[in-house]
């Protein structure tokens, strides 16, 4: 068991504006594990949207604005895998020509932990309160899978929750079609990928699916709302919060 008592939460732009509940649930889960969560209020975005579109200078400007926000040597927990990969792998590349910022970026990269990874190493079976049987699928974003192996942490984590039956949809490792501005520049191709992903999720027989990536969730849920189904994707933090004995859960009871 790790013993950090404090962590930073880097919530990401998508969580802040479009999926704040996921961020709130992540905070509650982390607190239930006994850590104090600091949320630097000047944080905005990791810069990924501009970076992957080919506007590295703009991405650099945004990333640079984050570098001074995490002064304590605490882990930086990121509840969105592809953003975690951005901090871990691409920030050092962005500042390759700027020695001072490069050193900062590398130090931050070393402290960056994806949410599932962090929770997996600290969660004890005794903390699980709800064991209602549920059939679940796990969707992992591609960059989180390939840059951070988040799918493995996610599976380990779900395996610790009694009652959860994890299903594996067809082509589980394939992209959901989001890909940032790809979804806007090539909407038909993106939509075809998303439709196939949803077909596979629905065919798996899962009651809901979870993901640790908010970009994918926005994409998949945005398309699911156009389908005659109640199936929805949930951030894995929200699912965990519903299974653990957390402060928020008690208050709501």
């Amino acid at each position: 068991m790790e013993t950090d008592t404090h962590v930073y939460l880097f919530a990401t732009c998508v969580v802040d504006l479009f999926s704040p509940q996921s961020g709130l649930d992540a905070v509650e889960v982390l607190e239930a594990l006994g850590v104090t969560v600091a949320f630097p209020r000047d944080q905005t975005c990791c810069g990924q949207p501009a970076y992957t579109t080919g506007f590295a200078d703009d991405a650099r400007r945004v990333a640079a604005a984050q570098l001074d926000l995490f002064p304590q040597p605490w882990p930086i927990v990121v509840p969105s895998g592809s953003c975690g990969g951005m901090l871990r792998h691409h920030w050092p590349r962005l500042f390759a020509d700027d020695p001072q910022r490069l050193a900062q970026a590398e130090a931050l990269a070393a402290r960056t932990v994806e949410f599932c990874d962090f929770v997996d190493t600290r969660l004890a079976a005794s903390q699980v309160a709800d064991t209602t049987p549920v059939r679940l699928a796990l969707h992992t974003s591609c960059t989180a899978r390939r840059e951070l192996a988040t799918h493995l942490a996610g599976r380990r984590l779900l395996a610790k929750l009694p009652g959860v039956e994890l299903l594996e949809p067809e082509h589980e490792a394939e992209c959901c079609g989001f890909g940032g501005t790809f979804a806007i520049k090539h909407p038909e191709i993106s939509a075809a990928m998303t439709e196939d992903k949803l077909d596979a999720l629905q065919a798996s027989g899962c009651a809901q699916f979870v993901s640790a990536d908010c970009g994918c969730l926005l994409n998949l849920n945005g398309a699911l709302e156009r389908r005659p189904t109640t199936l929805r994707g949930l951030h894995i933090a929200s699912f965990l919060r519903s299974r653990l004995a957390t402060r928020g859960a008690e208050q709501r009871r």
Binding site: V15, F18, K185, H186, P187, E225
Partner: peptide, 25 residues
């Protein structure tokens, strides 16, 4: 919303941002 809404419902901000929710909490 351009290509996004071709296959999806529009993106719409939440009623309050995470930073506001955390501040309230």
């Amino acid at each position: 919303q351009g290509g996004w809404t071709r296959g999806r419902v529009p993106l719409r901000p939440a009623p309050r941002s995470l930073r506001e929710l955390l501040a309230q909490r």
